[in-house]
Structure formats: C-alpha cells, structure tokens
Amino acid sequence: MKFGGAAAASTLMRIVVSYHHIFIFQMENRINALDGFRFLAISLVAVFHYYSRFTLPQSPVNYYPYGSSFSNVFSANAYLGVHFFFIISGFVIYFSILRSSHLKDFFLRRFIRLFPPLLLASVITYVFVALADPQRAFPFHVSALSFLPSLTFTDTLFWQPLFKGHKIALIDGAYWSLLVEVKFYLLIALIYFLLPKEKFLRNWTSLMAVLLVVHTLAEYVHFPMAVAIRKAMDVFFFYNYIAFFSAGICFYDFYIHKKWRLEYLVTAMIAGITLWSLGWAGMTFMAVFLVLFAMLVNGSSLLGFFALPIVRRIGVISYTLYLLHQYIGLILINAVCKWLPVAALWPVVPVFVYALLIGVTELIYRYYEEPVRKLMTNYYFPKRAPMPMVEKQAA
C-alpha cells in the first residue's frame, strides 16, 4: 500500500507538472493562456454591450428593458476588452509573421482566419435583425449594400457617396475593430517583409517614435496642417490603438528573448499618453491587462484559471462570438425579458443570452468555421509528401 500510495503521488505530481507546462507555458501554435485572455476580452465586451452601450449616457435612447439600472463604472469601461484583444493580436501576429515565408503567405492565412466566419456571421446577423425586429424597434437595420464595407474591411465613409439614399453601415457595429486589425496586419507586414527582417523591432520602434513626435507636434503646436495630420494618423496609423498592438509585439519579443530592450521605451511612452486619455477607470482596466501579460511572459503560475478547458474553449471561438453577440444579443435580451414577467430576474437575462450564443457559436465553429479553415488551408498550403528513402543498390 505504501508503494501504491507513493506511485499514485508520483503520478499525480507528473500530471500536475505536465498540466503546468502544457497549459501555461508551452508554445506550440499558440500560448494556451492566450485563449483564456480572449475569453476575458470577449466577456468584457459583452458586459459593455449588454449593460451600458445602449442606454444613457452611452446612447441617447435606451434599448434595454432594464434601462440604465445596471450600468456602472465597470460595465461602462468594459469596452476596453477590445483594446485587450489588440494587445493579444500584437502578440499573436508577431509570432505568426515570424513564421510566414512571404507576404502572400501571411495575408492568405489571415484571410482564411477572418473571412469565412465574418461572411456567415454577417448573413446571420442581417437576416436575424430583419426577421426578429420587423417593426424596426432597434436601429440595426441597414441596406444590403452594407455587406460591401463589412466584408471588405473598409470604412463605410468610402461607400456612402457611391450609394446615396441607402443606409450603408456595418452589418454589426462591432465590426469596426476588424478594420483596425486589418490596418495593423498591413502595417506590420510591410515593415517586416519590405525591410530587413532581422531589424524588425528597430524598424517598428522607429515608426512608433516618428508617430509619437508628429502626434505631439500636431496636438500641442498649432499650425495649418495640424488637424489634417491628426486625421491622417488616425486613418492610416490608427494612432489611438497602435500602442496596444505595439505592446503585444514587445511582450512577445520579451517572451522569446527574455531580456529588456531599449526599444520598449517608445511603446511605453505612446501607451502612457494613450492610457492617460482613458481616465482612472480605463487606466485601471489597462493596468490589469498589462499585468496579466507581464505574468504570462514571465511564466507566472497564477494564470491557471485562463488555462481551464472551458475558459480556453470560449477563447478559441471568441472571434465568431464577437461577430455575433452584439445586435443579436440585444434583441434576444429584450425578447426574453418580455417573456419573463419577474423584473428582478432581468439582470441575469444577459448572462443567459450570452451562454446561449456561446452554444450557438460552438456549433458554428465545430461544423463550419473549423472545417472550412482546414479545407482552405489544405488547398492553399498543401502538405508535401515526404520523399521516400532510396537505398543504394550494390554495384
């Protein structure tokens, strides 16, 4: 029995150690805790959209059955989950681009990742809004032409002059972040593939330094082109968000090299200026995000929650969940509250709706998103069969 107990304890220890290494620190195709971070990011965004986004003061009209009763400092600032996504994206895309052989390879893989779920989610959202809200109680109805900006990752301002008289907007307002993401892909790819790859971090930091100087001059020194320069920086360099992507890049660089670099200071300066504009609540949120990443890259053992299978799974499907949750979720919340006469239970209805959408998204991911991605990946990136070993024939 003693031997059996010792063997069991030894086995348990090996399992714990394996769990620690596999789920927290090991980089295969992804760092597993990052999926847990995605869970946190999408859940925060859902809190914002379900409790604060569509009531005063965020919206001039209330669209919640419970009004602003449950809107508070936390829910009002939970939109920063999108910014957390941007940090995660900077980390992951830097990892991804280092393993891309050329520009076409990188963009094709990004297209395979982004477009199929976006196409289906756009169709589902458009049809759902039309059928579930025939009286147009919600301002979510748009022209079918709205598929153009939504599916091409372009600004609606480009399309509106071309189709006057039509309400052209994004199929779901949450899609705005995809345009920022694609701009980041373009920027990082151009710097990485068109300039010396081995000096990428230096080149990226140089760009950050130029943006910092130009933005500071345009912001605080009054001259004729200042306003135009600020607008150009927002359009082409997504200046209000670039610090978060850059932070992700720096975190990944530290993760693989395990040493601090002088280049990080420029990102820290831009991040500091950006965070200052968020107010104390926003800065608190972002401080938590940055601490979580610092813990990740330093191998902290306190991130076990983010490695839990259910948490990671929701993180894996978070992209499609993000695409579906806002407009569909709000209409469902109102419908469920109408069926539920007990107003005291209304605060938990968003939780129920969120869980329902997680289930739907899991089915979409399992039976559509994952098979389509594998099919497209195998088509565009076929695996080469290994060359057979040929034994030398004796003369």
Rank of each mutant, 00 (worst) to 15 (best):
S150Y: 00
F23C: 09
Y79P: 02
Y50S: 06
L290P: 00
A137D: 13
F245T: 00
I24H: 07
F158G: 03
L363G: 14
I171E: 00
V61K: 13
R230G: 07
K164A: 15
K383M: 13
R312T: 11
I188P: 01
H141I: 08
S146W: 02
Q58R: 14
W280S: 15
S277W: 07
V351M: 15
F352P: 03
S318A: 13
D155W: 11
L40M: 14
L308I: 11
E263H: 12
S150G: 06
V45R: 02
L201E: 09
C250F: 04
W159Q: 02
A243I: 01
M295C: 15
W276H: 14
F37P: 00
M208E: 10
A271E: 01
F3Q: 15
L302F: 10
L324D: 02
A132R: 00
A41S: 15
A132K: 01
I97E: 00
R384Y: 07
M225I: 00
G315S: 09
F84N: 03
I97M: 07
Y252Q: 04
S277I: 07
I364R: 01
S206M: 13
R313G: 04
E263Q: 13
A76K: 12
F352Y: 12
F107I: 06
N32P: 09
S68V: 01
Y322R: 05
A243W: 01
N240T: 07
L262V: 12
H257N: 13
P371A: 09
I24W: 02
H20V: 09
S68G: 14
G304E: 08
F23S: 05
F107K: 05
P309V: 09
V342I: 15
L190G: 14
A394L: 15
P371D: 10
D253S: 10
G165C: 09
H257Y: 08
P65Q: 09
I364V: 14
F184M: 06
R38W: 04
T284L: 15
Q393G: 12
F111K: 01
F140W: 07
P139R: 08
A41H: 02
L186V: 13
L12G: 10
N203K: 09
Y64V: 03
M283A: 15
S246A: 11
A228D: 10
L179Q: 14
V92E: 02
A335H: 11
F84M: 13
I22N: 15
T11K: 12
L278C: 05
L212N: 06
F140K: 03
A385P: 04
M283K: 12
P149E: 04
Q326V: 09
Q26E: 15
L186I: 13
V351G: 14
L108R: 11
V311A: 05
Y126N: 00
L375S: 12
R261S: 14
